[in-house]
Every structure is written in structure tokens, then in C-alpha cells.
Design a protein around this nucleic acid. Structure first.
Length: 424
RNA sequence: GGAGAGAUGGCCGAGAGGCUGAAGGCACCGGUUUGCUAAACCGGCAUACGUGGAAACGCGUAUCGAGGGUUCGAAUCCCUCUCUCUCCGCCA
């Protein structure tokens, strides 16, 4: 699955990258092991191919002799011996490659040069938009949501379990409005190609976008089937062109989709668990882009701008945070988090995470493009970001637009979709 | 869920243990001929990896849906899986 070709070239970069992430100590053994296994792999391949070449010519010789009616016993014996050696070498190679692959799958992506080193404390506030509302007198979204009959937590828990939400009435319609708003914005204004996707995917897809093998415990699976519920539309959307070679003229490629997302959030109990802040199933419109290595850094700015535009149109004050290397996700090379202020809860909510993955995902999923006619294929660079994760946006709306009488004013852009200017 | 058929290069399609990286056709590229176009004729035309080379290119290995097996040798025989098609059943 993972492309094993460039390991030798990658090793030094990896070591430097893990130092920047503050993970060198933890990962050095994997990197050293990968370098070692890579050398072994190449050596084995060379011997193996040489033996195969010898056998192939012996085989030709046998055929020739048989046709001429000559004896070929000697060649047969020699060939059989070679065959045994070849099987043995193939077994060795398979083991080496398996080890090498699992070493490589453990190692996170290397971050870009302009990403701050270190952990979360080095995250950088890049810019802010809008004026956060004062917190005094603003109720948390779960109170107004329930009071206005928009959200039914109890029945969600009853039919599915804690962390599953039922939206009702105008609340349900609000979800649908956000879906239409976000898709319309990104298809009509930002040039994304819309897809409607399966939310159940196979193991290869989950590995391609690097959710597996590292995060299997966070996935919902379908029992006895090697199928998983997607944690984000990034998975099916990015994998659409897995194991394909695209013409250069297809890049940049921009795709968007609405899907439900499923996350077990294993080990997250107790943190942000109230209300809509951390749920097991939620809705999201995702943005995915494929770019060339030369343009991907700039493409991240474009993508982030698209996500910001949605927040601006909704009139929700937000800030843009550049994550430090140690806080950047496993596969990402650079991530901007968009955080919206929720005055009822009094916290900044991460509503979008925009990342460039360089060739990290493309390498695993086999997504390539051909730079020139007849030229060598290269891996694309993949990017993605939430074009809005709904529950937290809903939380922010219920708090930011909350009126003194407990009603909520509907952001102007949603009124045509929702058919009302007021939740009451 | 049951029963059957199938998967071969960019496309169509032969091949049924060795002389097949793969006939033939279409498409495409170059050329000849021809007022132009078309037609005819000649030639070329898969990919990946490794290796040598400044390069052109040479050499090696692999690839006929995927993975195993049989065999000195597999597109070809056997097994498993995936996908597609047809028929039956069931179903929002």
C-alpha cells in the first residue's frame, strides 16, 4: 500500500521533521529501522532479480533442447534449485517489505518550514476577523437549543447513545440550511465540484488518507465486514482518484461533499462533552484539493480563505491559528485551525481545520499526475479543510446571535434556506 | 441470498503450458503518395522498478482483475478473493 521507493531519500528529511515536531526520540528507532530495512530490501531485490534472470534463460534453454530432441536433465535440476532459492528470497523480501511498511506507517508527515517548532504552546494566532461578543448573560447553546425545541439530547441518547443528537423542527431545518449554504457557496463561488459519497469505506481508503492504522480505535466499523464509517468526507473524497494518474491539466482539482461523520472519540470523555461540542456523529461539508508540489503551499491559503469566507458570511467572529509542529495532525504538513468564539460557553471552538498533506496521503493512496506528456508520474499534493462542521457552528450561532429574550436571530445568509429570520 | 457468464495494452479483440510483452483491428504519432480533405501504402506506438549511459538508448525484473498454488517454465491448469454482466428471489 505505502509506496516504498523513496525511503532512502526521505530518511534525513524525516529525522529533521521529527525533531521539529519534538518527536525525534520517540520515532528515531522507526526511522533507523526503516533506513536499515530499505537497504536490505534493495539488496534482496538485486539478488532476486539476478536469480530470476538466470532461471529465465535456463528455461529457454530447456525449451530449445526439448524441441531439438536433446536431453535437458542437467538444466532441469539447476533450474529447480534456482526456483527454491527464488522462493526463499521472495519470502525474505515480503517480510522486509512488511516491516518497512509498518515502520513507515508509524512516522508522521514532515511539517513545512514556516510551521513553528514545538508543541501546542507555540501555536500562532495569525489573524482574527470580527468582534467576539461579551459573554455576560449569554446562555450556553444547550440551554437555548433545548428551550427552543431545536435539539433533543435525551431522545438522541435513547435511540443511539450518548453523543448522538436529534435536531427537531427549525433545528433540523437549520442543519439542512447549513448544508445547502455551504455547498452552494463552494460550488458556485469557489469552483468546487460537488460529490455525494458513500459514508462507508474499505480499509484501503482509510489507510490512504492515514486514519489507519494509527487511529483504528476511533473508527466505527461494521462488524465482520472490513468496512468503516467515515470520520470525515476527506476519506472518500481524497481517495476518489486513488491509484490513478491524472493529466496535469486536471490540477488544481477542487472537490466538495456533504457527509455525516462518525467518531468514537475514544478517551475523550469528560472534555468538552456537553452539548454539541463533541459528538459521535455530526455533519460536515468538506473541501478537498489536489495540487502540484509547486503550488500546494499557496493552495492552503486559498483553501483556508474559502473556509473563512463561510464564517464571514455567517457573521461569526473567528481567529486563524497556525498549529505548531507538535500539535499538527499525523499526516499534515501544515494546518490552520479556524476557531469561532462561543460567548455562551466562553470558549473558542475549532470549526475548521485546513491542512496541506504534501505527498503524504498521495503516496499511500497512489494519487499521481503526469507533469508532461510521456513524462514520469509524480505524486500530487493533497489538501483538505472543513467547509463547516455543523454542530459547533450551530452552537456558535445559538450563542452569538442569542437575544435577551432567549430567542435567536438567524444570520442573514441562512434566511432564504431556513425560511425565517428568527428561532423562537 | 441463489444460479450462471466474464475480467487480456488507450479502446475492441485473439491466444488455451515454452517460439507471446502478448496476433489482428481501431485510435494515436512519423513518413510516402495525392489540387485540399479523405483513402491507400510503409514505419512507430504499454507501464513500473532496478541497472548502465551525458544523452539517444541498452540490459535486467515484473505486469494479461488481485493474491496464493502446481510446474524446470503459467495470460493459459488449480484454489481463494474482488469487481462486472445475465437470470431468480428479497427489499427502501
Amino acid at each position: 500500500m505505502h509506496d516504498l521507493r523513496m525511503v532512502r531519500e526521505q530518511v534525513d528529511t524525516l529525522r529533521d521533521g521529527m525533531r521539529r515536531r519534538g518527536k525525534l526520540d520517540a520515532l528515531a528507532p522507526f526511522i533507523d529501522r526503516a533506513a536499515e530495512l530499505d537497504t536490505e530490501r534493495r539488496a534482496t531485490i538485486q539478488v532476486l532479480e539476478e536469480r530470476k534472470a538466470a532461471r529465465n534463460s535456463l528455461t529457454q534453454d530447456v525449451a530449445k533442447r526439448k524441441r531439438a530432441g536433446e536431453n535437458a536433465d542437467e538444466q532441469l535440476i539447476e533450474s529447480r534449485n534456482l526456483g527454491e532459492e527464488i522462493s526463499r528470497l521472495e519470502g525474505e523480501l515480503a517480510m522486509v517489505e512488511k516491516d518497512l511498511e509498518s515502520s513507515m506507517l508509524e512516522i508522521p508527515n514532515v511539517t513545512l518550514d514556516d510551521v513553528p517548532e514545538g508543541g501546542e504552546e507555540n501555536n500562532k494566532h495569525v489573524r482574527a476577523w470580527g468582534e467576539p461578543r461579551a459573554t455576560a448573560g449569554v446562555k450556553p447553546h444547550w440551554e437555548v437549543g433545548v428551550a427552543l425545541g431545536l435539539i433533543d439530547f435525551e431522545r438522541g441518547a435513547k435511540i443511539s447513545g450518548s453523543g448522538f443528537i436529534v435536531f427537531r423542527g427549525k433545528g433540523a431545518r437549520l442543519v439542512r440550511s447549513l448544508m445547502s449554504f455551504a455547498l452552494d457557496l463552494n460550488t458556485k463561488e469557489h469552483g468546487y465540484d460537488e460529490a455525494w459519497l458513500p459514508i462507508v469505506v474499505n480499509r484501503a481508503s482509510m489507510t490512504g488518507t492515514t486514519q489507519l492504522p494509527k487511529f483504528e480505535e476511533d473508527m466505527y466499523g461494521i462488524s465482520n465486514e472490513e468496512l468503516f464509517l467515515i470520520p470525515t468526507a476527506e476519506v472518500p473524497l481524497t481517495n476518489l482518484y486513488a491509484n490513478e494518474i491524472l493529466p496535469a491539466s486536471d490540477l488544481p482539482k477542487a472537490m466538495t461533499a456533504y457527509t455525516p461523520c462518525f467518531r468514537k472519540e475514544a478517551g475523550a470523555h469528560g472534555k468538552d462533552t456537553r452539548g454539541l461540542l463533541r459528538v459521535h456523529e455530526f455533519d460536515k461539508v468538506e473541501l478537498v484539493r489536489y495540487a502540484t508540489p509547486e503550488t500546494s503551499a499557496g493552495e492552503l491559503e486559498i483553501l483556508t480563505g474559502h473556509a473563512e469566507k463561510a464564517l464571514q458570511l455567517l457573521g461569526l467572529p473567528y481567529r486563524v491559528v497556525l498549529l505548531a509542529a507538535g500539535d499538527t495532525g499525523f499526516g499534515s504538513a501544515k494546518t490552520y485551525d479556524l476557531e469561532v468564539f462561543a460567548p455562551g460557553v466562553g470558549v473558542w471552538l475549532e470549526v475548521s481545520s485546513c491542512s496541506v498533506f504534501t505527498d503524504f496521503q498521495a503516496r499511500r493512496a497512489g494519487i499521481r499526475y503526469r507533469p508532461a506528456e510521456g513524462g514520469k508520474p509524480r505524486f500530487v499534493h493533497t489538501l483538505n479543510g472543513s467547509g463547516l462542521a455543523f454542530p459547533r457552528i450551530i452552537a456558535a450561532i445559538l450563542e452569538h446571535y442569542q437575544n435577551a429574550d432567549g430567542t435567536v436571530t438567524v444570520p442573514e445568509v441562512l434566511r432564504p434556506y431556513l425560511g425565517t429570520d428568527r428561532l423562537d
